[in-house]
Nucleic acid binder design. Structure first.
Lengths: 256, 256
DNA sequence: CCACCTCACTGGTAATACCAGTTGACCATG
DNA sequence: CATGGTCAACTGGTATTACCAGTGAGGTGG
């Protein structure tokens, strides 16, 4: 069995989480004034410091606005929160995965991946190409062993190298955010992504295109690669949204 | 003159900012163990609570890892920080704008904008089309008055409506993050973006394409629209990076 | 009626004590 | 000598109390 680290949740983590849920699930509507800190920490049974740490984090995430003298108000997270909030939205009230969020994740991935490959092909240093080819080789090996979890890990490694080679800090940071979101549902998606993960030739083709500084090829191969997962995921979402239907429609065409 | 709200900085804001700079500018390298809280708050001349609020925020942003019993360590933000950090990276040590970050911002915008328009055209409700057309009209009016700042504001409004119509929470949140980043340098960029901002017909064409659910057109017009700004911005960056050169090369081709 | 002031709120800062997890040196035991 | 246990000196986590500093509503005098 796979043992994993025990998560130590601190009090302010708990408070943060609880308030976060209240806000994200709409039980605390935008504009609502929160109870005063002294009152709220009494209600929650924690000291004021712990509550304040949680409130500070909520403010940083763009979920509440704190004002001295005034009251702390709930904001509309759809207007004020940043992409980092995405991972918190994956699970809905009942604890099941929110398919709308998964679809969003897949779509933004499909939009970014080709351009990451394109820029990497333009800008990558030789050392990075070596790294890419190395990961590609390990993907070949994992494919030979038919080790899907390893392929999933290596796929992330591959994109990690690629995005670093793109020399674009926005892509790097967005990738971190998306990876963090993906990680929380990774095991649940390994089968759906299987087709894409097993496409070892595509990974190698991207690595080689980057080595040739062939940005057009890199872009196209990357686009086709993620299209695998996109297509399968859309099929699954259509299936789960409308049980009884066997095949998913609405596969996004590359409109070029 | 345009008066603006005075920013009230709290102690923990100050501490957060200071530690953030230390980390982002590499003076606190990844892996470095921070001094103990009791020691650090003495050094900074603040109470422990204020320091802890700041440290919590840094941890949430993915810049440090806090461990009870152990020490608080600096993380490699290129690996662990999310897109929300982008706005903090815009200004470098000397207080001037980091052109690498601006380039990154422009590039990710160019990658997302066409797909936002495409999805919006697929999914927008009639009410949203009305909103879009309304903003388009106001853009026409602002253009007639040659009011560039107004055009800049309206452009953001337009994209805000469009991204909401895309029915993709990842795009919505990413847009929030990018807008927040853009806002901090907006005035500095108004002239560079002038061509794009004045292209009122493009905004209207997108609105109308969305109204027809014509995703292909919406995508292409949006792509062409942001291309204006992208091209100009690349020219400017090339100019500033290599003073003496008059024209910028390396305009990103749409590789389709 | 309106300008002004007061006061009871709100969040912000501070100091102190103690709880709880981690680490490493040290020592008993096999 | 290797292993495992013990303990002390760290670390961050929680709690309590007091007071400072903005805000805004309602009372008050003009």
């Amino acid at each position: 069995m796979a043992l994993s680290r025990i998560a130590k949740r601190t009090l302010s983590d708990e408070v943060f989480e609880q308030l976060l849920r209240e806000i994200l699930q709409g039980r605390m509507a935008p504009g609502l004034a929160l109870p005063a800190e002294r009152e709220l920490c009494e209600t929650l049974g924690v000291n004021r410091g712990a509550l304040r740490e949680a409130l500070r984090r909520l403010a940083q995430a763009g979920l509440v606005a704190i004002a001295q003298g005034g009251t702390t108000k709930v904001l509309d997270f759809r207007r004020t929160a940043g992409l980092d909030l995405l991972s918190q939205l994956l699970f809905n009230e009942t604890g099941s995965i929110d398919l709308q969020v998964v679809r969003s994740l897949i779509e933004i991935r499909a939009a970014l991946a080709p351009d990451i490959a394109r820029l990497c092909a333009r800008r990558a240093e030789p050392a990075l190409v070596v790294e890419l080819l190395d990961v590609a080789s390990r993907i070949d090996a994992a494919l030979a062993a038919d080790d899907l979890p390893a392929l999933q890990e290596l796929s992330l490694d591959f994109w990690d190298v690629l995005v670093r080679g793109s020399d674009n800090i926005a892509y790097v940071l967005a990738f971190n955010t998306l990876r963090a979101t993906y990680d929380t549902v990774r095991v649940a998606l390994v089968q759906v992504m299987a087709d894409e993960l097993r496409d070892a030739p595509a990974y190698r083709a991207i690595a080689e295109a980057v080595g040739r500084h062939d940005d057009v090829s890199a872009r196209h191969v990357a686009s086709a690669l993620v299209e695998h997962g996109t297509h399968r995921m859309f099929g699954l979402i259509a299936l789960l949204d409308r049980p009884g239907t066997t095949s998913g429609d609405d596969p996004p065409k590359d409109a070029s």
